[in-house]
């Protein structure tokens, strides 16, 4: 979902992900198909279709980009956290996100991508990051809402990815999921304290949930089952074992998990059409207006410019530091070769 690759209906399709050059032949791919059929794991040096490799690189990279861009909306409140315990927890969470980005870039690199290229794709807009991080964090309660809703949604998506067909990605997901569980819990805890605090705190919490609910549902992507089943990449990704469940399935799972939690929190979600459906044993929820999602994906969300600019600036301003480290390492290795000689 962080790596989900959906474009707005009026966006141009990407050509750069079409397979180029020599394709593995049908015979070469027998082992690949066998692995998928037996629910095994494809490893970095296995023969694989170019499309599989390129789709994975893009999905994993965009997942990584989401983690590192995601550091910004939350990093925004580290300096202002209202207790030292909350400050420490938030620092640790944001730090985890940097770590997740690193695990994921490493996984993408096993497919032959170079981290520098992936970062450039992010900086120039060729690759995307999850739409959710283009929203502003306006109050402390947003830290709770992000932890509870955004991380909650991410977990629903990531747990199935722990069984994705590509080994390094699946293993990175296992690691991420272990660390992620604390993230959601801390978000819930923040909202619980606020909801049960003063009137002003309760209002702060409810306001944050009102702003983050629909964008969180949109994180799962456009509808892709039933009449919308043939759109997008869902079918191919599922055939390749990269995607295990449809967007709509995951979204429904998230809603069903989250509504009872909202009741424990004493908070409501801003959906007048939400109701329990006894027949489906599931919650019916309101129609999602996906035009907002498509606008945000196209770059017209509240924080798109700002998020990318911050990221690019950090990278550019750090250039001299990275070059210095390279220069120092070169000097050291030159020294050791002359010593040997």
């Amino acid at each position: 979902m962080y790596g989900n690759d959906f474009t707005a209906p009026d966006e141009p399709t990407r050509d750069q992900d079409q397979p180029t050059g020599d394709q593995p032949t049908g015979d070469d791919l027998t082992q690949f198909r066998q692995i998928l059929d037996t629910d095994g794991r494809v490893e970095p040096r296995d023969v694989m279709p170019e499309g599989y490799r390129k789709t994975l690189i893009r999905q994993i990279a965009q997942h990584a980009h989401s983690e590192i861009i995601g550091m910004q909306p939350e990093g925004n409140w580290i300096g202002r956290a209202p207790s030292l315990r909350r400050k420490a927890i938030l620092m640790a969470k944001v730090q985890d996100e940097a770590g997740h980005g690193l695990y994921l870039y490493a996984a993408a690199e096993t497919l032959g991508a170079d981290r520098a290229d992936l970062l450039e794709a992010l900086h120039t807009g060729r690759q995307k990051y999850s739409s959710i991080f283009n929203y502003p964090t306006l109050t402390w309660a947003d830290m709770g809402a992000i932890g509870w809703l955004v991380d909650g949604a991410a977990i629903v998506n990531q747990v199935p990815l722990c069984r994705c067909s590509y080994g390094p990605y699946a293993r990175a997901m296992v690691r991420v999921c272990k660390e992620e569980s604390f993230h959601q819990r801390q978000g819930f805890e923040i909202l619980y304290a606020l909801s049960n605090g003063s009137e002003a705190q309760h209002e702060m919490a409810q306001d944050a949930v009102n702003r983050w609910w629909w964008p969180s549902l949109m994180m799962f992507g456009p509808r892709d089952t039933g009449a919308d089943g043939s759109q997008g990449h869902t079918e191919q990704s599922m055939a390749w074992g990269i995607k295990r469940f449809a967007n709509d399935e995951l979204r429904q799972r998230f809603v069903d998990m989250t509504i009872p939690q909202s009741e424990s929190l004493g908070l409501t979600v801003p959906d007048p059409d939400l109701r329990w459906n006894g027949e489906r044993v599931s919650y019916d929820f309101g129609e999602i207006d996906f035009t907002e999602l498509f606008e945000v994906i196209k770059g017209n969300g509240p924080c798109n410019q700002q998020r990318l600019a911050h990221r690019v600036r950090a990278h550019q301003e750090g250039g001299w530091v990275r070059e210095a480290a390279d220069a120092y390492a070169r000097k050291r290795s030159a020294l050791s070769t002359t010593e040997v000689a």
Binding site: T110, R115, R332
Partner: peptide
């Protein structure tokens, strides 16, 4: 897993952190 570092010393430190 893997990581990027300019030299072995920093690689070890980064690995410890990560």
């Amino acid at each position: 897993g893997s990581l990027h570092a300019p030299d072995a010393e920093m690689a070890l430190r980064n690995a410890r952190d990560l």
